[in-house]
């Protein structure tokens, strides 16, 4: 009799069979050989060659005063590499990037005015600003070209289009300022949001959780 009762009860247990079938779960991990360890201090250009190809939207179109040679033609307004308060033009630029280590010509080429410049003096186009930033922010650059930093736009499928660093970060003031968020969630129609408790009820029983939170 007892045996039968036990057996009957066991038969009543409903298994969640869906949870047992694990065969359909594909592995998201590759073979260790498939990817190389993070390269250290590697030349940005060779790093980019290893990564899946990408394009960035044209930046120069969006620059109001581009081409710079519109004014900075050799002989008319000469580049002045001296660090000084700006008098006539570009007064809106408040250079906080680099904590005082930089001056315009650190990044903007003194001689090829429509280009940026690497620390070594090689010209870098405005559309390749990420190469310039990547000189110092190497880890960011690596994450950028592999898609972990910055933002991909358009399709997830092919033709990787990445937003250039300068689309989000103002290169002169790269830190993004706090701002107000979009509206807070609502509760469903017909119900009122919870009011904050009028008075914190003293706990009937001191709990460890409370102690932890107090500290």
């Amino acid at each position: 009799m007892h045996k039968w009762i036990l057996l009957g009860l066991l038969l009543l247990l409903p298994p969640n069979l869906g949870a047992l079938d694990l065969s359909h779960i594909p592995s998201t991990r590759s073979n260790p050989e498939d990817f190389s360890p993070a390269p250290q201090n590697i030349d940005p250009l060779s790093l980019i060659k290893q990564a899946p190809p990408f394009v960035v939207p044209d930046r120069t179109e969006k620059l109001l005063t581009y081409p710079c040679t519109g004014c900075h033609t050799q002989g008319i307004i000469k580049a002045n590499p001296k660090i000084r308060p700006l008098q006539m033009m570009h007064q809106e630029i408040n250079l906080v990037h680099g904590k005082g280590r930089f001056w315009c010509t650190t990044c903007h080429s003194t001689y090829e005015r429509d280009n940026l410049t690497s620390l070594k003096g090689q010209p870098i186009g405005f559309n390749q600003a990420y190469l310039l930033c990547g000189q110092c922010h190497q880890h960011r650059l690596r994450e950028f070209i592999y898609g972990a930093h910055g933002k991909r736009i358009g399709s997830w499928e092919e033709n990787r289009t990445l937003l250039n660093c300068t689309e989000c970060h103002n290169p002169h003031v790269p830190q993004i300022k706090p701002r107000k968020p979009r509206s807070a969630p609502a509760v469903r129609a017909g119900l009122r949001p919870m009011k904050p408790p009028i008075q914190e009820h003293p706990p009937f029983w001191p709990s460890n959780l409370d102690d932890y939170q107090r500290h």
Binding site: M194, P196, P197, I198, Q199, E200, H201, P203, F204, W205, S207, L209
Partner: peptide
């Protein structure tokens, strides 16, 4: 259980 028996964060 805390909510049920003791109240949680002032909601009881």
């Amino acid at each position: 259980a805390q909510y049920l028996f003791l109240g949680l964060k002032g909601y009881h």
